[in-house]
Lab assay of single mutants.
Amino acid sequence: TTQFTVHSPEQAEQWKEYAKQKGLEVHVQKKNGTWHVTIH
């Protein structure tokens, strides 16, 4: 599991796309103005 924080919805979307291409599961949670992205 990879977990990191991004600071814009655009970055979060890019990671979603990346994960989809790799066939991975991605979870994005918005918290205090940042987005926590978890890739399984």
Rank of each mutant, 00 (worst) to 15 (best):
T1M: 12
T1I: 14
T1R: 11
T1N: 07
T2W: 15
T2K: 12
Q3V: 12
F4Q: 02
T5A: 08
T5H: 09
T5E: 11
T5K: 07
V6R: 01
V6S: 03
H7Q: 11
H7N: 13
H7M: 10
H7K: 09
H7V: 08
H7T: 12
S8F: 06
S8M: 04
S8D: 06
S8W: 05
P9S: 14
P9W: 15
P9D: 12
P9I: 15
E10N: 05
E10A: 08
E10D: 07
E10V: 07
Q11Y: 05
Q11L: 13
Q11F: 05
Q11M: 11
Q11G: 05
A12P: 01
A12H: 02
E13V: 06
E13Q: 11
E13R: 11
E13I: 07
Q14H: 12
Q14E: 09
W15V: 05
K16M: 13
K16L: 12
K16A: 10
K16Y: 11
K16C: 13
K16T: 08
K16V: 15
K16P: 00
E17M: 11
E17P: 01
Y18T: 03
Y18S: 02
A19Y: 11
A19D: 00
A19M: 05
K20W: 07
K20I: 10
Q21G: 09
Q21K: 12
G23L: 04
L24D: 02
L24K: 03
E25V: 13
E25Q: 12
V26P: 01
V26W: 06
V26T: 03
H27R: 08
H27I: 12
H27K: 08
V28L: 06
V28H: 01
V28W: 04
V28G: 00
Q29I: 14
Q29R: 11
Q29P: 00
K31G: 09
K31R: 12
K31N: 09
K31T: 10
N32Q: 07
G33Y: 04
T34M: 14
T34F: 13
W35S: 00
W35Y: 10
H36G: 03
H36Q: 13
H36R: 10
H36L: 15
H36P: 00
V37D: 00
V37N: 01
T38E: 05
I39D: 00
I39G: 00
I39N: 00
I39Q: 00
I39F: 06
H40G: 10
